[in-house]
């Protein structure tokens, strides 16, 4: 099958991009870094008639931070830039770590955090941490702009809550409350290069030893990056003892519905989810105790 032939459009404003997407309908695809899209096109899994590149839109690659509100990562901000950004490394170290553990150097120099989310792979490295940090996606479409918690953004493998004509322009990550710790742990066969067999993002907020808020998000073990809400409930309001963390980790594993594929078996995923949930919660607890 020959490579699909398409037109390439590089609008310079978000409005032009939305207009092009509305006009193109189902045959049009939005491209940020293109590292997922191009592989699908080259493997003849996708046949777009138009590619709408966001790269020429001024300011869309911005990374901005404000101590009061939080962090905004633009749609075309590179994974490499997020991974190395001094402010992100200081205030959101796990966000930088997740970006750094996405693919390889070349892909991080091309791909974007927002693109990784919009590709909506259940194994997306950047999703678990950002969901755990209560991130929201900023969306522009033909009917204006709206925001959506990232937690509600994923609808299935490759599926998102985006309506036709809508584009994610940025992701916003609120400033975490005091005494908050986070962790991201991913497991894959070839270190960080290949897609994660399991990814685990955790956030813990403490008041003394008591856990006032917690999120546990498992990647690649369900059709979407999954919040294990029952496990979270077990921890809220409680003292985070090792014993309780172990019980909650088991619960988190029970909430997943992994499949067996080339990256890992379902049984392995379920077993290891428990292990890395324990590790991530302990890491997050440690960081929360350190953080003012």
């Amino acid at each position: 099958m020959p490579a699909p032939h398409f037109d390439y459009i590089a609008p310079t404003t978000v409005d032009e991009a939305v207009a092009a997407l509305v006009k193109g309908g189902k045959d049009a695809r939005v491209m940020a870094g293109g590292t997922d899209l191009m592989v699908k096109i080259r493997h003849r899994a996708l046949f777009p008639k138009q590619l709408i590149s966001l790269k020429r839109i001024d300011g869309l690659n911005a990374i901005t931070f404000d101590e009061k509100s939080g962090l905004t990562i633009g749609a075309t901000a590179l994974l490499a830039d997020v991974a190395s950004h001094p402010v992100i490394r200081q205030h959101y170290p796990t966000v930088a770590e997740a970006a750094q553990s996405t693919a390889n150097v070349q892909v991080r120099n091309m791909g974007t955090v927002v693109g990784n989310l919009c590709n909506a792979s259940p194994s997306a490295d950047n999703a678990p941490t950002l969901i755990a940090l209560n991130a929201t996606v900023n969306i522009t479409g033909p009917n204006g702009t709206r925001s959506l918690p990232l937690d509600e953004f994923f609808r299935g493998p490759g599926l998102t809550a985006l309506e036709s004509g809508e584009i994610v322009t940025s992701i916003f990550v609120p400033m975490p409350p005091a005494h908050t710790g986070t962790a991201y742990i991913s497991i894959s066969q070839r270190g960080q290069l290949d897609c994660s067999a399991i990814g685990l993002g955790a956030r813990v907020t403490l008041d003394g030893d008591r856990c006032t808020d917690v999120r546990i998000v498992v990647g690649a073990c369900a059709p979407i990056p999954l919040r294990t809400k029952d496990a979270e409930k077990m921890l809220i309001g409680q003292e985070l003892t090792d014993e309780l963390i172990r019980k909650a980790a088991q619960k988190a594993s029970d909430e997943t519905s992994p499949i067996t594929d080339v990256r890992a078996s379902a049984a392995y995923r379920q077993k290891v989810t428990t292990v890395i949930t324990i590790r991530a919660l302990i890491d997050a607890r440690k960081m929360a105790k350190r953080k003012k």
């Binding site: 191009m38 592989v39 490499a80 150097v105 892909v107 091309m110």
Partner: peptide, 13 residues
Amino acid sequence: GKSVSSCLTLAVE
């Protein structure tokens, strides 16, 4: 100045 995969980069980009 940044290393990229030329097989995934469109020439127009």
